[in-house]
Protein backbone atom coordinates (compact mmCIF):
# COMPACT_ATOMS: atom_id res chain seq x y z
CA UNK A 1 0.00 0.00 0.00
CA UNK A 2 2.62 2.45 1.06
CA UNK A 3 4.72 1.47 -1.98
CA UNK A 4 1.85 2.20 -4.28
CA UNK A 5 1.31 5.56 -2.58
CA UNK A 6 5.00 6.23 -2.99
CA UNK A 7 4.77 5.49 -6.69
CA UNK A 8 1.74 7.72 -7.07
CA UNK A 9 3.57 10.42 -5.16
CA UNK A 10 6.54 10.10 -7.45
CA UNK A 11 4.36 10.18 -10.51
CA UNK A 12 2.59 13.31 -9.33
CA UNK A 13 5.85 14.99 -8.40
CA UNK A 14 7.33 14.13 -11.77
CA UNK A 15 4.21 15.39 -13.52
CA UNK A 16 4.32 18.66 -11.62
CA UNK A 17 8.02 19.04 -12.35
CA UNK A 18 7.38 18.47 -16.06
CA UNK A 19 4.46 20.90 -16.07
CA UNK A 20 6.38 23.66 -14.28
CA UNK A 21 9.46 22.87 -16.32
CA UNK A 22 7.61 23.19 -19.60
CA UNK A 23 5.77 26.34 -18.53
CA UNK A 24 8.55 28.19 -16.74
CA UNK A 25 11.98 26.67 -17.16
CA UNK A 26 11.84 26.15 -20.93
CA UNK A 27 10.92 29.72 -21.87
CA UNK A 28 13.45 31.06 -19.37
CA UNK A 29 16.13 28.85 -20.86
CA UNK A 30 15.16 30.06 -24.32
CA UNK A 31 15.62 33.68 -23.25
CA UNK A 32 19.00 32.80 -21.79
CA UNK A 33 20.05 30.97 -24.92
CA UNK A 34 18.90 33.80 -27.16
CA UNK A 35 20.76 36.34 -25.03
CA UNK A 36 24.01 34.42 -24.82
CA UNK A 37 24.28 32.48 -28.08
CA UNK A 38 26.54 35.16 -29.51
CA UNK A 39 28.74 34.93 -26.43
CA UNK A 40 28.78 37.09 -23.30
CA UNK A 41 30.43 40.06 -25.05
CA UNK A 42 27.52 41.19 -27.24
CA UNK A 43 25.05 40.48 -24.44
CA UNK A 44 27.02 42.69 -22.07
CA UNK A 45 27.30 45.39 -24.72
CA UNK A 46 23.53 45.25 -25.23
CA UNK A 47 22.89 45.73 -21.51
CA UNK A 48 25.49 48.49 -21.22
CA UNK A 49 24.06 50.47 -24.15
CA UNK A 50 23.08 53.87 -22.66
CA UNK A 51 19.43 53.46 -23.75
CA UNK A 52 19.23 50.03 -22.14
CA UNK A 53 21.07 51.01 -18.97
CA UNK A 54 18.91 54.09 -18.43
CA UNK A 55 15.77 52.04 -19.06
CA UNK A 56 16.84 49.41 -16.52
CA UNK A 57 17.75 52.08 -13.97
CA UNK A 58 14.39 53.79 -14.46
CA UNK A 59 12.51 50.52 -14.05
CA UNK A 60 14.48 49.67 -10.91
CA UNK A 61 13.99 53.05 -9.26
CA UNK A 62 10.28 53.19 -10.11
CA UNK A 63 9.80 49.66 -8.79
CA UNK A 64 11.61 50.45 -5.54
CA UNK A 65 9.46 53.49 -4.85
CA UNK A 66 6.31 51.64 -5.76
CA UNK A 67 7.19 48.71 -3.49
CA UNK A 68 7.87 51.09 -0.60
CA UNK A 69 4.62 52.99 -1.09
CA UNK A 70 2.67 49.74 -1.44
CA UNK A 71 4.14 48.28 1.72
CA UNK A 72 2.90 51.21 3.79
CA UNK A 73 -0.32 51.74 1.86
CA UNK A 74 -1.06 48.03 1.65
CA UNK A 75 -0.74 47.66 5.42
CA UNK A 76 -3.19 50.53 5.91
CA UNK A 77 -5.69 49.02 3.49
CA UNK A 78 -5.39 45.55 5.02
CA UNK A 79 -5.83 47.01 8.48
CA UNK A 80 -8.98 48.82 7.42
CA UNK A 81 -10.38 45.68 5.81
CA UNK A 82 -9.67 43.38 8.75
CA UNK A 83 -10.07 45.53 11.83
CA UNK A 84 -12.74 48.06 10.96
CA UNK A 85 -16.30 47.56 10.02
CA UNK A 86 -17.66 50.39 7.94
CA UNK A 87 -20.25 50.78 5.22
CA UNK A 88 -18.76 49.75 1.88
CA UNK A 89 -16.12 47.48 3.40
CA UNK A 90 -17.08 44.61 1.09
CA UNK A 91 -16.97 46.95 -1.88
CA UNK A 92 -13.46 48.06 -0.89
CA UNK A 93 -12.40 44.43 -0.44
CA UNK A 94 -13.57 43.67 -3.97
CA UNK A 95 -11.98 46.83 -5.37
CA UNK A 96 -8.57 45.81 -4.02
CA UNK A 97 -8.53 42.83 -6.36
CA UNK A 98 -9.62 44.81 -9.41
CA UNK A 99 -6.07 45.67 -10.52
CA UNK A 100 -5.50 41.93 -11.03
CA UNK A 101 -8.66 41.59 -13.09
CA UNK A 102 -8.21 44.58 -15.40
CA UNK A 103 -5.72 44.19 -18.28
CA UNK A 104 -2.87 46.53 -17.44
CA UNK A 105 -3.00 48.11 -20.88
CA UNK A 106 -6.52 49.22 -19.95
CA UNK A 107 -5.14 50.59 -16.68
CA UNK A 108 -2.82 52.76 -18.75
CA UNK A 109 -5.64 53.94 -20.96
CA UNK A 110 -7.74 54.73 -17.87
CA UNK A 111 -5.02 56.88 -16.35
CA UNK A 112 -4.48 58.80 -19.58
CA UNK A 113 -8.25 59.27 -19.89
CA UNK A 114 -8.31 60.57 -16.33
CA UNK A 115 -5.17 62.68 -16.24
CA UNK A 116 -4.37 63.34 -19.91
CA UNK A 117 -3.85 66.86 -21.25
CA UNK A 118 -7.40 67.00 -22.64
CA UNK A 119 -9.05 66.37 -19.27
CA UNK A 120 -10.02 68.94 -16.64
CA UNK A 121 -7.82 67.29 -14.04
CA UNK A 122 -4.91 66.97 -16.46
CA UNK A 123 -5.16 70.60 -17.51
CA UNK A 124 -5.24 71.77 -13.90
CA UNK A 125 -2.14 69.71 -13.10
CA UNK A 126 -0.31 70.99 -16.19
CA UNK A 127 -1.23 74.56 -15.27
CA UNK A 128 0.30 73.94 -11.86
CA UNK A 129 3.45 72.86 -13.66
CA UNK A 130 3.02 69.19 -12.77
CA UNK A 131 3.47 66.69 -15.56
CA UNK A 132 1.70 63.48 -14.66
CA UNK A 133 0.96 61.32 -17.68
CA UNK A 134 3.88 60.62 -20.03
CA UNK A 135 6.15 61.39 -17.07
CA UNK A 136 7.45 59.86 -13.84
CA UNK A 137 4.48 60.66 -11.54
CA UNK A 138 1.91 59.06 -13.84
CA UNK A 139 4.07 56.00 -14.30
CA UNK A 140 4.53 55.59 -10.55
CA UNK A 141 0.82 55.97 -9.83
CA UNK A 142 -0.11 53.45 -12.52
CA UNK A 143 2.42 50.97 -11.11
CA UNK A 144 1.08 51.46 -7.58
CA UNK A 145 -2.38 50.66 -8.89
CA UNK A 146 -1.26 47.54 -10.73
CA UNK A 147 0.68 46.13 -7.76
CA UNK A 148 -1.62 47.22 -4.92
CA UNK A 149 -3.14 43.77 -4.18
CA UNK A 150 0.18 42.04 -3.39
CA UNK A 151 0.83 43.54 0.05
CA UNK A 152 -2.84 43.75 1.00
CA UNK A 153 -3.47 40.10 0.21
CA UNK A 154 -0.25 38.97 1.91
CA UNK A 155 -0.90 40.90 5.12
CA UNK A 156 -4.65 40.33 5.41
CA UNK A 157 -4.72 36.68 6.58
CA UNK A 158 -1.93 37.20 9.13
CA UNK A 159 -3.67 40.27 10.46
CA UNK A 160 -6.93 38.34 10.73
CA UNK A 161 -5.15 35.69 12.83
CA UNK A 162 -3.86 38.28 15.28
CA UNK A 163 -6.11 38.33 18.29
CA UNK A 164 -7.01 41.90 19.31
CA UNK A 165 -7.21 40.50 22.86
CA UNK A 166 -3.41 40.20 22.86
CA UNK A 167 -3.11 43.93 22.33
CA UNK A 168 -5.58 44.61 25.10
CA UNK A 169 -3.69 42.24 27.37
CA UNK A 170 -0.43 44.05 26.64
CA UNK A 171 -2.09 47.36 27.43
CA UNK A 172 -3.44 46.09 30.77
CA UNK A 173 0.01 44.76 31.60
CA UNK A 174 1.32 48.30 31.29
CA UNK A 175 2.70 48.50 27.77
CA UNK A 176 2.50 51.89 26.07
CA UNK A 177 0.64 52.24 22.76
CA UNK A 178 3.96 52.36 20.97
CA UNK A 179 5.20 49.23 22.73
CA UNK A 180 2.02 47.37 21.79
CA UNK A 181 2.63 48.33 18.16
CA UNK A 182 6.31 47.55 18.03
CA UNK A 183 6.29 44.40 20.20
CA UNK A 184 2.90 42.82 19.57
CA UNK A 185 1.35 43.98 16.31
CA UNK A 186 4.18 44.62 13.90
CA UNK A 187 6.53 41.61 14.34
CA UNK A 188 4.18 38.94 12.98
CA UNK A 189 3.27 41.26 10.08
CA UNK A 190 6.83 41.76 8.92
CA UNK A 191 7.17 38.54 6.91
CA UNK A 192 4.01 39.13 4.82
CA UNK A 193 4.87 42.84 4.43
CA UNK A 194 8.33 42.09 3.12
CA UNK A 195 7.13 39.22 0.94
CA UNK A 196 4.31 41.32 -0.51
CA UNK A 197 6.69 44.23 -1.03
CA UNK A 198 9.10 41.93 -2.86
CA UNK A 199 6.31 40.74 -5.10
CA UNK A 200 5.27 44.33 -5.82
CA UNK A 201 8.85 45.15 -6.69
CA UNK A 202 9.20 42.19 -9.02
CA UNK A 203 5.90 42.89 -10.73
CA UNK A 204 6.59 46.62 -11.14
CA UNK A 205 9.99 45.86 -12.67
CA UNK A 206 8.43 43.92 -15.49
CA UNK A 207 5.14 45.76 -15.96
CA UNK A 208 4.53 46.44 -19.62
CA UNK A 209 0.93 47.24 -20.60
CA UNK A 210 0.33 50.22 -18.36
CA UNK A 211 3.82 51.61 -18.99
CA UNK A 212 3.51 51.43 -22.77
CA UNK A 213 0.53 53.78 -22.55
CA UNK A 214 1.25 56.04 -19.58
CA UNK A 215 4.93 56.60 -20.28
CA UNK A 216 6.25 59.01 -22.90
CA UNK A 217 8.63 56.25 -24.02
CA UNK A 218 11.42 58.72 -24.72
CA UNK A 219 14.71 56.80 -24.54
CA UNK A 220 16.86 57.72 -21.54
CA UNK A 221 13.96 59.76 -20.10
CA UNK A 222 10.73 57.86 -19.68
CA UNK A 223 11.40 54.59 -21.51
CA UNK A 224 11.24 51.66 -19.06
CA UNK A 225 13.06 48.39 -19.60
CA UNK A 226 10.04 46.28 -20.57
CA UNK A 227 8.97 48.68 -23.31
CA UNK A 228 12.58 49.03 -24.40
CA UNK A 229 12.68 45.26 -24.84
CA UNK A 230 9.69 45.35 -27.18
CA UNK A 231 11.31 48.17 -29.15
CA UNK A 232 14.44 46.07 -29.59
CA UNK A 233 12.40 43.05 -30.73
CA UNK A 234 10.60 45.22 -33.26
CA UNK A 235 13.90 46.70 -34.37
CA UNK A 236 15.06 43.17 -35.15
CA UNK A 237 17.56 43.07 -32.26
CA UNK A 238 16.15 39.95 -30.60
CA UNK A 239 19.48 39.03 -28.98
CA UNK A 240 19.81 42.47 -27.41
CA UNK A 241 16.22 42.29 -26.25
CA UNK A 242 16.87 38.90 -24.65
CA UNK A 243 19.98 40.18 -22.88
CA UNK A 244 18.06 43.07 -21.31
CA UNK A 245 15.19 40.68 -20.48
CA UNK A 246 17.64 38.44 -18.69
CA UNK A 247 18.72 41.31 -16.45
CA UNK A 248 15.09 42.19 -15.74
CA UNK A 249 14.37 38.54 -14.93
CA UNK A 250 17.32 38.30 -12.59
CA UNK A 251 16.32 41.51 -10.78
CA UNK A 252 12.72 40.36 -10.43
CA UNK A 253 13.71 36.91 -9.20
CA UNK A 254 16.16 38.45 -6.72
CA UNK A 255 13.48 40.83 -5.44
CA UNK A 256 11.04 38.02 -4.84
CA UNK A 257 13.53 35.68 -3.28
CA UNK A 258 15.02 38.37 -1.07
CA UNK A 259 11.53 39.37 -0.01
CA UNK A 260 10.69 35.85 1.13
CA UNK A 261 14.04 35.17 2.77
CA UNK A 262 14.14 38.49 4.58
CA UNK A 263 10.55 38.06 5.62
CA UNK A 264 11.17 34.65 7.11
CA UNK A 265 14.39 35.74 8.77
CA UNK A 266 12.85 38.87 10.27
CA UNK A 267 9.85 36.87 11.36
CA UNK A 268 12.05 34.32 13.09
CA UNK A 269 14.17 36.94 14.87
Amino acid sequence: MSVRWGLAGWAITAGVALWVGALVALPLAAVGAEALHRGPGPALAAVLHPDALRALALSASLATWVAAVNTVGGLAVAWALVRWDFPGRRLLAAAVDLPFAVPTLVVGVLFVALLGPNTTLGRALEAAGLRVVYAWPGMAVALCFVTLPFVVRAVEPVLAELDPAEQEAARTLGATRWQVWSRVVIPPLIPPLVAGGGQSLARALGEFGAMAVVSGNVPRETLVASVYVLGEVEAGQVGDAAAVSLVLLALAAAAQLAGRRAGRWLGAA
Binding site: Y134, G216, N217, V218, P219, L223, G231, E234
Partner: peptide, 12 residues
Amino acid sequence: GATLARVRVMDK
Protein backbone atom coordinates in the same frame (compact mmCIF):
# COMPACT_ATOMS: atom_id res chain seq x y z
CA GLY B 1 19.95 67.33 -29.91
CA ALA B 2 18.11 70.55 -29.11
CA THR B 3 14.98 69.26 -30.87
CA LEU B 4 15.10 65.84 -29.22
CA ALA B 5 15.34 67.63 -25.87
CA ARG B 6 11.81 68.97 -26.55
CA VAL B 7 10.33 65.55 -27.30
CA ARG B 8 7.81 64.46 -24.72
CA VAL B 9 6.24 61.34 -26.20
CA MET B 10 7.89 58.91 -28.59
CA ASP B 11 5.38 56.45 -30.01
CA LYS B 12 6.04 53.43 -32.17
